[in-house]
Design a protein around this nucleic acid. Structure first.
Ligand SMILES: [Zn+2]
Ligand SMILES: [Zn+2]
Length: 707
DNA sequence: GGAATCGGACGATCAACTGC
DNA sequence: CAGTTGATCGTCCGATTCCT
């Protein structure tokens, strides 16, 4: 019954961008709410309100709502039998699988609602049943460690587990796919895809299930949370941490209290405390029109998993897997399914990577039969599991085949650039890879060069230009290597890299640079006048140097610098430095790789301050200050606007270190203290309400009418 | 001991981007 | 235009403080 519905639902509808406050309330009297247009969720039905954590998740399974009033046993009533489920999505097979498993493994008789149950079952089942249980286990739920920067990291999964990804056509493709295919890997979670086991009994080789499996499990976890508190160990994922679920919208009381709300109205908490006015809180619409810098390289060459597809033999920019759905190249020519499976199984150790590796290898090999099996460089630095080796052995020889031997191909072959001996860490390597991979290039002496084992550029070697340039990676960036990697986020090309470390890193050198860049500073101050521009328009081209500079707060002068150095340990410094320190790789000249104090152009979004500040122990006074990007090039302006919370502000003052720093920084001091209050209004349209990042709850609440 | 606060981790959503 | 990326904004955990 659900097919159509499910499919419909599968589609994303973002139209409901602004979450209309569902003020109405109980049971969603509002007809409109019955079916959330955008989400397609039957919110209004039953008592389920809002959506579960992943409303759009294709994998969303039936949700069992277990209002306090009624026991879960009333399946008929409680079940949110909505087809947004993987099952629905792949109804026939998947469901069968489900049932099948259910029967086999899970005998929780009474629970019919259990898609969720079954899911768990499945999970358990897999773990218990198959030799690769470990593998599954590891693969399973999310490793909650998010890290966009670790896109290539061995253990990391794709940055987002967004449901969206699971919707992609790639998924559907699976049905037709032969068991082991790279396509399977397209889905970020594909590690277990190759494993028949994951396919759930009876449906070996079905790529679909694995993926779903993973997701479902997660969803399931969510359900558990929904129904009960937390808890069960089952909920814990690989990381040992269960995924936190959230209601789509909390009631005003819960919101204010920062406590968990429920999807019912009145919510459980309100009921508990006898609050009568339990209504949905309002959400402000997301801002739009904010420009972003270029994204990091797209995945056409990468699988969803972050696994890069090697350039095809055609030498083109490899086609994305999806374009080659049926292409044999995604299969392991040299292996039969079983073999492959085994390997994966063996490789269990978790590492999702293990699976990937193999796949990659195989995948690659498809194009290079003549080549010996090799591990990609990627694997090398990925720290392959020892255990996995055994499994791998079968087909691969020793890892780390030196590309050099077959360099011409190797250039293409290893999806990732070989780790350089100099790589100080996986992270760095990963980042480096990320940067260089697409172009098959790597950083050398501060410059990006085509990747080549021999140190010969690709161009030199094969005359190919590929890799040298790309729209996103024009040859620009040059600068000292660390500039982009060590510091991290400075990478002009990838905003994806987490900025967080940058700060830590920067700081230290910041001071030095400050002096070194005295000129720059001066310039900045000189430019400070430009602030007026800040008004909102986005005139600044991304990364524009001049404007961005102007936008910066007047930098602390020497004194500030001094203090910075002196008080590095103080979190305050972090903060202080952060702002001015946000550096962008200004084309100061190739040699100048040093960090500069230039602020990023407002057009380029900096990572949320919240995130940035997370490194520090205390909440940043106003992350938003740095965060602000919309149309404004003036960081100073931002601060004015964003620092709205008296609390934060006060905190700032209270913190001796912080205060000191701030004061020392003239540019900061004046505007900040002087205009803080006034500035609030100023952000006006776009920021007036924007306080969240800063944690300026006061304002928020005020806006929200919570006070 | 429980409620209220609060910092900030975690997560969902979705607009900007990218590349076909 | 579909798919991806990553920022925004929301939820709520867990620690701390306040209140009775
Ligand atoms: Zn509530
Ligand atoms: Zn409530």
């Amino acid at each position: 019954m659900n097919n159509q519905l499910s499919l419909q639902n599968m589609q994303r509808h973002f139209s409901d961008t602004a979450y209309l406050p569902q003020v109405s309330s109980r049971l969603n009297p509002n007809p409109n709410l019955i079916t959330r247009p955008s989400r397609g969720l039957p919110v209004g039905t039953v008592q389920q309100r809002g959506t579960m954590s992943m409303p759009t998740s294709p994998i969303m399974k039936k949700m069992v709502i277990q209002p306090t009033a009624s026991p879960a046993t009333d399946l008929g009533q409680e079940i949110w039998d909505f087809p947004q489920t993987a099952q629905a999505f792949f109804p026939s097979q998947y469901q069968q699988q489900q049932q099948h498993l259910q029967q086999q493994n899970n005998p929780h008789p009474g629970q019919t609602h259990n898609q969720a149950q079954s899911q768990d079952q499945i999970q358990l089942h897999n773990q218990n049943q198959t030799p690769n249980s470990e593998f599954n286990h590891h693969v399973l739920p999310m490793d909650l460690t998010p890290s966009s920067s670790e896109y290539y990291d061995t253990t990391s999964q794709p940055p987002t587990t967004s449901s969206l990804q699971y919707i992609s056509p790639q998924s559907t493709r699976f049905q037709d796919q032969p068991p082991i295919t790279v396509s399977g890997m397209d889905l970020g979670i594909g590690m277990d895809i190759d494993s028949p086991f994951t396919n759930h009994a009876g449906f070996p080789n079905q790529a679909v299930s694995p993926t779903i499996n993973t997701q479902v499990q997660q969803d399931e976890l969510e359900d558990h949370d929904m129904n009960c508190d937390a808890g069960t160990g089952a909920d814990t994922g690989t990381g040992g941490r269960k995924k936190r679920i959230q209601v789509r919208i909390a009631c005003t009381h819960c919101q204010k209290a920062c406590k968990k709300c429920s999807n019912t109205r009145p919510c459980e908490r309100c009921v508990k405390y006898g609050l009568t006015d339990c209504v949905d809180s309002t959400r402000k619409p997301r801002k739009t029109g904010i420009k972003r810098g270029p994204y990091k390289r797209r995945s056409s060459k990468y699988s969803a998993t972050g696994y890069p597809y090697p350039l095809t033999d055609e030498g083109g920019d490899g086609d994305s897997p999806k374009t080659k759905t049926n292409n044999h190249q995604y299969q392991f020519p040299n292996q039969d399914t079983n073999t492959n499976t085994n390997i994966n199984t063996v490789s269990n150790h978790s590492d999702v990577q293990a699976g990937f590796h193999l796949s990659k290898i195989n995948h690659t090999r498809a194009n290079f039969f003549h080549l010996p099996h090799t591990h990609t460089a990627h694997e090398n630095h990925q720290s392959p599991q020892p255990g996995s080796g055994s499994g791998l052995q079968s087909n691969s020889n020793p890892l780390h085949h030196q590309p050099s031997s077959t360099h011409s191909q190797s250039i293409i072959y290893p999806p990732f650039p070989k780790p350089t001996p100099t790589a100080s860490s996986n992270l760095v390597t990963a980042i480096s890879n990320a940067l260089s991979l697409p172009q098959q290039s790597q950083w050398v002496d501060g410059q990006r060069l085509p990747l080549n084992t021999n140190g010969v550029t690709l161009e030199e070697e094969n005359g190919s230009e590929k890799g040298k340039t790309s729209p996103l990676y024009p040859k620009i960036p040059v600068g000292v290597f660390p500039f982009s990697l060590v510091g991290g986020k400075d990478d002009p090309f990838s905003r994806a890299v987490s900025p967080i470390k940058q700060f830590d890193f920067d700081f230290a050198s910041a001071g030095k640079n400050a002096n070194a860049n005295a000129n720059a500073n001066d310039n900045r101050s000189g430019l400070s006048g430009v602030r007026e521009e800040s008004e909102g328009e986005e005139q600044n081209p991304p990364r524009s140097v001049s404007t961005s500079v102007s936008s910066i707060l007047p930098l602390p002068n020497n004194t500030s610098t001094r203090s910075t150095n002196e008080t590095i340990t103080n979190t305050t410094n972090l903060r202080v430095n952060t702002q001015p320190m946000i550096s962008s790789p200004l084309p100061m000249g190739p040699g100048t790789g040093a960090y500069t104090f230039f602020a990023l152009s407002s057009k380029i979004r900096k990572p949320s301050l919240r995130t940035l500040m997370s490194t520090s122990t205390s909440r940043a006074p106003s992350p938003t200050a740095t965060t602000r990007t919309q149309g404004t090039s003036n960081a100073l302006y931002n601060i004015e606007m964003d620092i709205q919370s008296p609390t934060l502000f006060t905190a700032c003052a209270d913190d001796s270190g912080m205060l000191l720093d701030v004061d020392e920084i003239e540019g900061w001091n004046t505007p900040w203290s002087g205009k803080n209050d006034d500035g609030v209004g100023e952000g006006g349209d776009d920021d007036g309400i924007r306080n969240h990042d800063g944690g300026e709850t006061g304002l928020f609440e005020g806006i929200m009418g919570l006070h």
